[in-house]
Design a protein around this nucleic acid. Structure first.
Lengths: 245, 245
DNA sequence: CAAGCAAAAAATATAGATAATTGCTGCGAC
DNA sequence: GTCGCAGCAATTATCTATATTTTTTGCTTG
């Protein structure tokens, strides 16, 4: 499954229900399991008992194995021969590594995207940003990351910025890292009671402005800062949670 | 299957025969199929008929599906729901993209490796280089890339350079790109009758010298040049081959 | 308390059933 | 005659159910 285009891809995921007849059980399972890992329903480190999961997802064991095998090559699942599958552990080190590499790759992709992107590209960014800001006006701002609509809009926005990048590999790797970091972000938001102090909306606004003004250096700087602040926020929350063993 | 350490990992692959009892059919199949794709036994674009492959590898269909599923998330195999698997096509664009991203990622990893690496790391580089240069003294220098020993030594050398890098993600991505480019390199060497004009040995020597002299800028420059020249060489050969349809 | 053994559980593989796709054949319209 | 298309047959992919192997667990015994 090679990554083609962010927006197309994400739309494709929403159309799952429409063309689910054409999809294999294994593909649907891979999506379901990945979602359940992202949303913490399958917690980090938990063993993935095949017969239990098979019953839970109402699917056969072999399609399930196939789904887990696929996820095992992208980091969400750890497979050990003859000892089955388990959800990959999370760690501060992995988060830091993820975000660091993300910054490196996304900055490369953003610069290239800004070089190639035309008015259509700009329009898609503005549209995605508009959708995201509308969803943001919810009564409870603190739990945004658990809202599927916001998650989708947020993802759309970030990939719209990069969509002018023509590197299949960069987009594939960035997507992998994005999903990895999403697990951390969601876990933290679930765990916290307090609302978020950061003004994420403003960060996104400034980032978009820099991009549309063709100021690549500033855009990369803002993007890096955006990620670093997310990292700090998550690390701080992880500290709180971890100190209750 | 998270990437742990280049040298460990590569050694692990050689020990497959020893601990094959503990490995699953699916894991072994994934290795076999990947090797056969790299060596052009399964040519680009070819359909992977499950019952044929099953007979050929003397294995059941489900472990085979599992193996192909795994390979499909790293680029060697393209899976299409309800229509099975096929070997991914090769293209000039993909090669260029692969090498470009490789340069970006390996330069980052190399700098970090040079910052972290100590005498043990230096020793491993020298040892790997020595092994490689010994294998290089074969009568027919033009077909080196088809020699398993040289491929192993060459891979060992490049990963030894990066082994000080502590980023799991970078190493995973670099490994993926390395394998991708290997398919192109091998295909070209198989197709050509003429011997290679480049002095690859000297490029490796200079690269190692720059690394051991702690000259990161020069090392990255040499590494980039090394990759670029490989790219040009492969592209030129692909042109020859493609012009005979 | 440790070592060894047996039973249970779980992972993996096989074989057979089902569903989808491909390709062919024949019919009819232009 | 050729093009288009419906319907059928054959192939192929996919899934389910079952069998086998491996690992884990828990008990017993020294």
């Amino acid at each position: 499954m090679r990554f083609i285009c962010c927006v197309e891809n994400l739309k494709g995921m929403q159309m799952v229900t429409e063309k689910s007849q054409k999809r294999t059980m294994a593909s649907q399972l891979a999506d379901s399991v990945r979602d359940d890992i992202l949303n913490g329903i399958l917690p980090p480190g938990s063993r993935l008992n095949l017969s239990n999961l098979s019953r839970h997802y109402k699917a056969g064991i072999n399609p399930l194995r196939e789904a887990l095998s696929r996820l095992s090559t992208t980091g969400f699942i750890t497979a050990e021969d003859q000892r089955g599958f388990r959800v990959s552990e999370i760690s501060r080190d992995e988060l830091i590594d993820t975000q660091r590499v993300r910054i490196a790759l996304e900055c490369i992709a953003l610069r290239e995207s800004m070089e190639n992107g035309g008015v259509v590209w700009e329009g898609e960014i503005i549209a995605a940003h508009h959708r995201m800001s509308r969803v943001q006006n919810t009564p409870d701002g603190s739990r945004l990351a658990l809202d599927t609509d916001w998650e989708t809009a947020h993802s759309d926005f970030h990939f719209a910025l990069l969509s002018g990048c023509r590197s299949q590999w960069l987009m594939l790797f960035i997507n992998t890292l994005f999903e990895c970091s999403t697990r951390y972000r969601k876990a933290v938001v679930r765990a916290r009671r307090k609302s978020i102090r950061r003004n994420v909306a403003q960060e996104h606004q400034e980032l978009m402005d820099a991009v549309l003004n063709k100021n690549a250096d500033k855009a990369c700087e803002l993007l890096s800062k955006h990620f670093d602040e997310t990292t700090d926020f998550i690390l701080a929350s992880m500290g709180e949670v971890e100190s209750q063993p």
